[in-house]
Nucleic acid binder design. Structure first.
Lengths: 350, 350
DNA sequence: CTATAATGTGAAAGCGCTTTCTGAAAACGC
DNA sequence: GCGTTTTCAGAAAGCGCTTTCACATTATAG
């Protein structure tokens, strides 16, 4: 209990246990069998000294970081928590730490190489969120064989890195067909997500397919911008109402946008689902608590996070990885489409 | 462009630039002036070789990690994204990386010391979320002078580490007084958050003060459990309705719980705000889009994250830090309390 | 001009681990 | 019993940086 003793190193542990540092390292890592009594003695010394191995020394010597980097364009509200939960849990289970970089302008070619601390030698692999990295950088990483998986985006043709994608098209198609078949909708609006967002494109494709399959002409006036957020979706609906564009349903692109649509309609005194039916996509945490509860498509976001790590770990270990994981989606019928309330099974979360 | 050349180190850069590695290190870190031409030559070599310094070597040699650890009990839905956004941005601005550990059962005394890789030598400091660390471990860290700040929780008496807290009491009191004074409520329910949660306790104290200040007796029947989540809050309200407990308003503890309350009332055909008024706390992203838009108290969660890092960085640098940062809250009046819709200023986000 | 102080750079000593290489001792085979 | 294999543990060589320390230079002073 002295004042400023420098903290213990592996040498201190070795000395106290009367062995060499090599042996301490071996019980620490379980790399080579050590006589049980000796091992116990070492473990005792570790506890007594409150020894904590320096990660840096370990990394430097072993040339493995046991760390996975996560690159995000920004930390959004919606499914971000679920995604991170999946990523964190799976990474931990596989024995990796998680280093997070969330910001635009990271890893751009313009950033001096010396500042790009996340990739290469400083992590064992990268989970890259759509639109958070420049294509050149992605290609460079791939060329030097650095493990990367891509989230919600198809990799460029020249780069065969694993990608985790949502089954957007089919889910959206079923959703829109439900509006048409069950509720007789004919004028269904669609709100697009951010420019270049693949999820949005897939959902729009599903929307168009559904219309086509039912012989309904797509009206360009009914395709607006929702930006996958409440504000912009809300604004678009307000504008449609102001311009008296007739519509009997809105597929909002995602649940955030649907929330904005609901708010705009509520404000305007338009009843949902009586006057207009509203559906979203994602099945975000709040969707079942909206008024009325939102009909949507469940996107298994947490599973996406887990799958991303699973594939990345395979790449890191040099095992064959799935080039493309298409995560299944599922229609979730609630009331905003006009269906009747589901009799909530006791104890069920629906 | 050969196949498997090992990646460049500082020595390769030094050789190519015709200087010693010490000089390269100096331009990398800007620690000592270097003749401009030489520096340029070195920077050129760095770019050409795609040199990226190994963090591990740097950390080992300098004994600084430039990394801040974040300890969370779990990755929740609600204000988690905002918190992380604040933490990430401020940490990056201060030149730190972010290492995230989210899970219960981390850093418990039961975890072998050798596995507690996050603290001590492996980060420069820790942001500890309420209820994610055992008190003994906190005390130990404090004893060895390891920089820590505590989020949403008052540190134990013996441990004087900085804490970032919300001004819960005053905010809650104003909120409840608004219900009483403006809307004439007399039977106001309160839903508690998780057991031992200080935010919940502070809000409950504010609730009681408001009642007392207005001469209303607190009815224990009107204090229920909401758990700061939709499900449990929803269940409690359902139970109150089933038991015909009369109430004219509900202060749900937080916005998640308020969302659940709204859903339960909606399901039961109880109108908000005509029959029952509902208010929350936090001003989460969805609150303004609920039906009706939620009256609540704005908790500056992103600012909490920033402030946490700001204080932690001070401790890391050995500067004096604020022992206690009390973040101000602000009443946000919308419609769920019975007030009229605010005329939304054009371009405003309210 | 010579003595003195800046200034810029290199040599080299670590930082605390992992891991190869080697050797001693114990176990085994015939 | 002696040679051979196996098991366990130590010595020592790095891993790729930062940082003292010392040393040339060059600038400044007297």
């Amino acid at each position: 209990m002295s004042t400023t003793h420098r903290s213990p190193t592996i040498a201190d542990v070795a000395q106290r246990a009367g062995v060499s540092i090599a042996t301490v390292s071996r019980v620490l890592n379980g790399t080579t069998p050590v006589v049980p009594e000796t091992a116990d003695r070492i473990r005792g010394a570790i506890e007594e000294l409150h020894y904590v191995p320096r990660t840096a020394a370990r990394v430097l010597a072993s040339r493995r970081t046991d760390t996975i980097g996560l690159l995000l364009p920004e930390i959004g509200e919606a499914f971000f928590a679920a995604l991170l939960r999946g990523i964190e849990a799976e990474a931990r289970a596989a024995g990796f730490d998680l280093l997070i970089h969330a910001t635009t302008h990271v890893l751009h070619a313009s950033v001096p190489a010396a500042r790009r601390t996340l990739a290469e030698h400083n992590t064992d692999g990268l989970v890259v969120f759509t639109q958070s990295i420049r294509e050149e950088e992605l290609i460079r990483l791939h060329q030097i064989n650095f493990p990367v998986v891509l989230l919600f985006e198809t990799p460029p043709r020249s780069v065969d890195i694993p990608a985790i994608l949502l089954e957007n098209r089919t889910g959206a198609q079923r959703l829109v067909e439900h509006l048409i078949d069950v509720h007789g909708c004919r004028r269904i609006g669609f709100l697009q997500g951010p420019k270049g967002n693949e999820d949005s494109e897939g959902r729009q494709a599903g929307y168009k397919r559904a219309l086509k399959a039912r012989g309904i002409a797509a009206d360009p006036e009914l395709i607006g911008y929702g930006g996958f957020n409440e504000e912009e979706a809300s604004a678009t609906i307000q504008e449609w109402l102001a311009r008296s564009i007739p519509f009997d349903a809105v597929f909002a692109g995602d649940d955030d946008a649907a929330t904005g649509v609901l708010a705009a309609l509520h404000r305007a005194g338009v009843r949902v689902p009586q006057d207009v039916r509203v559906v979203g996509f994602d099945d975000s945490a709040v969707s079942r608590f909206l008024s009325p509860p939102l009909t949507t498509v469940r996107a298994p976001i947490e599973a996406v996070g887990r799958e991303a790590i699973r594939q990345l770990v395979r790449v890191i270990r040099g095992e064959p990885a799935e080039p493309l994981s298409l995560m299944p989606t599922e229609l979730v019928i609630r009331e905003s489409c006009g269906c009747q309330p589901q009799p909530a099974a006791p104890g069920s979360k629906a």
